[in-house]
Simulated assay, not measured.
Amino acid sequence: MRASAADSDTDLIARAVSDLTRRTRFPVAFGGMLRDGAVHVSAVSGARTRHLETLIVESGRGLGGRAVLETRPRLALDYRTAKSITHDYDRMVLGEGIATLFAVPIVVAGTPRGVLYCGSWGQAPGAEVAARPAVAVADAVADELRIRDEVERRLSRARLEPAAEAMPAVAREQLRETYAELRRIAADVRDAGIRERLTRLHEKLAPASPADFEIGMNASLSPRETDVLACAALGSTNAQIGVALGLKETTVKSYLASAMSKLDASTRHSAVAKARRAGILP
């Protein structure tokens, strides 16, 4: 399980580092997750040398370690002469020729989970403005980690129960509320790539609680039809669903009608029941 999580973290950091070089004005980007009190750099982009590839930053040490300790971004306009940080990692950072360095911690629920760095070979005037997109990238990584943690927590709880009937009613309802909330969050994310990854995460919850899928049911609901039905499953009115999903009430009615038709259900309650038996909803 730990190996799988580590592989996922590595992929997540690699995508984030790629985003940094694309969305900021800094030519060099690197980053890693926090493990055993240190940030282990696992992805580097745009570097001229290999000095950064083996970098391990202890909490509180260097610019990144300071960012971890304070859980806020740190900027060194002239890294070589910066007096507010330790210089434990000069051999790697200066070996790459970096003059300006920006470190952004990845923080989930107040806890640092990793660090993303942006660097340039010359001093960069206006670096704070230029580095603002890096904060957005770090926030996106934190959001994905937070949602992934919640999904894994719910799945772990579901796996402990031998069947849906054995799952306490409260836990089952919490599972359904989490599923609906994750769908709402995914619908609000603008980045298509992140939205797709979040969709894959919350889809893991759909088959987590049903005991028996209905044989022969092959309904295929659209993402929005599923979003609306997931909210309806919690007892929300059309108006409440519209507010939650940012839709007009008439649009909600249209999605519900379409979902009911596909599921061959005469009421929303019947549609929800059939969707659960089909493994579309938890």
Results as ranks from 00 to 15, higher is better:
121 W>Y: 15
101 L>E: 04
64 G>F: 09
74 R>F: 07
114 G>D: 02
48 R>T: 12
126 G>P: 07
57 V>A: 07
40 H>S: 14
117 Y>S: 13
33 M>K: 01
72 R>D: 05
33 M>W: 00
25 R>Q: 15
107 V>N: 05
84 S>R: 14
19 D>N: 14
50 R>L: 02
25 R>A: 15
34 L>I: 06
114 G>C: 02
45 S>H: 14
10 T>N: 15
93 V>G: 04
44 V>C: 11
68 V>D: 02
70 E>L: 06
67 A>R: 07
31 G>L: 05
102 F>E: 01
98 I>F: 07
103 A>P: 06
111 T>Q: 12
99 A>T: 13
24 T>L: 07
84 S>M: 12
85 I>V: 10
15 R>L: 08
120 S>P: 03
15 R>I: 01
22 R>N: 06
32 G>F: 07
100 T>H: 04
83 K>A: 15
75 L>T: 13
113 R>D: 00
108 V>M: 09
113 R>N: 00
11 D>E: 12
123 Q>C: 03
95 G>K: 06
76 A>D: 08
92 M>R: 14
21 T>A: 09
44 V>M: 06
96 E>L: 11
61 R>G: 03
21 T>S: 10
18 S>L: 07
60 G>F: 05
78 D>E: 12
121 W>A: 05
73 P>A: 01
107 V>L: 03
45 S>T: 12
51 H>Y: 12
94 L>C: 04
50 R>M: 06
25 R>D: 15
94 L>T: 11
67 A>M: 03
106 I>W: 02
65 G>L: 11
109 A>T: 03
71 T>M: 09
88 D>A: 08
55 L>A: 14
83 K>T: 14
112 P>L: 00
34 L>E: 04
92 M>P: 01
107 V>C: 11
29 A>M: 13
114 G>L: 08
43 A>C: 08
95 G>D: 00
57 V>R: 01
106 I>S: 06
114 G>W: 09
117 Y>N: 11
46 G>Y: 09
66 R>I: 15
35 R>P: 00
30 F>R: 03
125 P>R: 03
28 V>T: 05
61 R>T: 04
126 G>H: 01
102 F>K: 02
49 T>G: 06
84 S>A: 15
73 P>S: 03
101 L>D: 00
26 F>G: 02
59 S>W: 00
36 D>S: 14
14 A>T: 15
88 D>T: 10
